[in-house]
Design a protein around this nucleic acid. Structure first.
Lengths: 367, 367
DNA sequence: CATAGTATGTTAACCGGTTAATATTGGATA
DNA sequence: TATCCAATATTAACCGGTTAACATACTATG
């Protein structure tokens, strides 16, 4: 690669001249004749500017660091992909590149820490948490980010009572779905959760007993199984559940994949959905549409959450000092796996637009 | 953010000392006492090195630029996600970060060009092509990359007769699947392709007539429909096909999503899979396992292709001068949507391991 | 005591750009 | 002719690190 200096030398001007021209080719500080000569030289030497030198000089990189602590490969997750996609679409539209730091084996907090210490220089950051993060990890990561003294936004993280920019999936705890089923009159509801030890799972497990109690339903832990977000495990656990022979009217799953897998299992056992058992998924992913019957599902609006995170970051980058919290509310997408009939106490939350993200934002400033 | 210089000043040493220590904290050029003091200062000021300054100084960034020209959001694609995932897993394992450049609206070649011109400074590059790239675009992108004089690998690109590093999905044209169905004795095969104007689609359409002719089957273009890789379009086009009332024994789809959608449509029309019509998917995605019946599908081994691309890049980064071509062969994953009975001429290509990527690499050097 | 070696640092150039401040030239104007 | 201004270009500091080469003091050795 040739450098600015070489181009300047070749043309017979100072490197400042070339730089000035490159940064504003309509400048009138460089004569048309010189501009032409510079153009020629650039073409001849196939010159392109070194982005890192520019970044250093301007202390602006147009790069947003994505802190995504995971011990499994990225881009394979039905839940985080739409979020990343939302982030990417907004960042791209505003000319920002995304930098994914290496995410080796190890605990998630180690990963995040390494990612952060390697990352100084980005214009801003977006901090994800994945199922592998404990609350403690998350707080440590936030602290670490704080040190960088650059704008950042947290995403897919349980609501924190801190003056930081955060985008919250309001219905991540999925009580929305349970309430929907309760509203339909179901009483014997099987919960198919993800990994037993995840933060999100634990926080759910704290809320559910109360939720049921409010309806006069005693909590019975036999009605909770863990499908680890995989088709295989959820089918396996479900069959074990069936073997117990306890009655079930509806199933609320923490992912469409698990819901689809269980739907198949139900059909294979000779029962039918929703006549015998109702099934509810989560994510409004393609799986929910391809499943037969099509799944009624919770749409947490992840894509939009990703977009919001990027938007929040833009506010911050533009100098907005107020830290904001954006809560994205989930909606229910009614399809065929839960009968429409029945008392319906959540009408306002039901999204009849099928699949277009119907966004409901609740903005409120924190500090 | 504090800087190296500030830390050095605070400790009372030269910035070189601090730098030397940071780059090798086991160095014996710095006394234990000084090391301690530096540690304290770093902790006190929460100092972290600026990555861009380091990159500039060392002319090594540990960043790989991902050139991914697309006009739709990334990370939403069932085909490219596993490839990206494979790339990411290898890059991460070797300590490399991934930089995704902004990908605005516009033609894919514009996008790639902008991505490239903004990217000088990465240690290496991986060039994707997406459905939006024409062959001409691809060649232009390769040329552009060549100018950067850095190692790069092309991926998901039709085989090019150029001395460059390329990873090829050997069975991207999916004749593998058609041959499999032909081998089973099917004659009336409906092809469900993606977008009519994609490079890949066009290159397929060139090969298919010959393929059929070899078996004595005349090519009939009514047996080709375009599902645009979506569940909706493929269902719609398939129903239009059914309306034509021409006989069909088997369906070969260019994605599991389309196959799953069509499987549902078949069932809804009162026919059954595979008794009445066989259906074959592509990608061995989760969709193929969740579909009912589970889909027989082509596994192109995209994850592994991604890994190979990263590996090739490592070879190049390590100074390997020989340009390599890696062809990843596809395999057939037999499930339930095509009956097992029948003549089977492709036994060696059938993968009975269900879903673990059974890799078959064919290495050969080009130059 | 002279010499070599070790431990501990420092100097200064460099990576490849950007930019505020300054310089030069020539033509227009009073 | 003196003055001013526009057009064009350069100088030099700076961004925040890295590193080869050099410097100094102290210890060990013959």
């Amino acid at each position: 690669m040739s450098t600015l200096k070489e181009i300047a030398q070749y043309v017979g001007v100072s490197s400042a001249s070339v730089s000035i021209y490159l940064n504003d080719n309509a400048t009138n500080r460089i004569s048309p004749r010189t501009k032409l000569k510079i153009d020629e030289a650039i073409k001849k030497f196939k010159y392109q500017r070194n982005m890192f030198a520019r970044n250093l000089s301007t202390s602006k990189s147009n790069i947003i660091g994505i802190i995504f602590p995971t011990i499994v490969p990225m881009f394979m997750n039905d839940f985080t992909n739409p979020i990343l996609s939302g982030v990417q679409s907004r960042l791209s539209a505003n000319g920002y590149a995304m930098l994914f730091f290496p995410s080796f084996a190890g605990t998630s907090s180690e990963i995040a820490k390494r990612q952060l210490t390697a990352s100084v220089g980005c214009d801003g950051y977006i901090l994800f948490s994945t199922g592998f993060c404990s609350l403690q990890d998350i707080l440590a990561n936030v602290q670490e980010l704080q040190n960088l003294q650059k704008p950042y936004v947290t995403l897919n993280i349980p609501e924190l009572d801190l003056p930081i920019n955060q985008v919250i999936l309001k219905d991540l705890d999925s009580t929305l779905g349970i309430e929907y089923l309760l509203g339909k009159g179901f009483r014997q509801i099987l919960l198919v959760l993800g990994r037993e030890k995840d933060v999100h799972t634990r926080s759910m497990m704290k809320k559910i007993p109360n939720l049921l109690k409010q309806r006069g339903i005693p909590f019975d832990d036999r009605y909770v199984i863990y499908g680890n977000y995989t088709a295989e495990d959820s089918a396996k656990e479900f069959s074990r559940f069936l073997d117990m022979g306890i009655p079930v009217e509806a199933i609320c799953c923490m992912s469409d994949i698990m819901a689809a897998s269980i739907t198949t299992a139900i059909k294979q056992s000779g029962l039918s959905v929703p006549e015998d058992i109702s099934v509810m998924g989560r994510n409004n992913s393609l799986y929910s549409r391809i499943s037969d019957p099509q799944l009624t599902t919770m749409d947490l609006h992840m894509f939009e959450a990703g977009q919001s995170a990027a938007n929040l970051l833009f506010d911050s980058l533009a100098g907005g000092d107020a830290k904001q919290k954006v809560a994205i509310a989930g909606t229910i997408v009614e399809r065929k796996s839960v009968p429409k009939a029945g008392r319906d106490s959540l009408a306002s939350r039901i999204d009849h637009t099928f699949s277009l993200p119907a966004c409901r934002r609740h903005w409120y400033s924190v500090v």
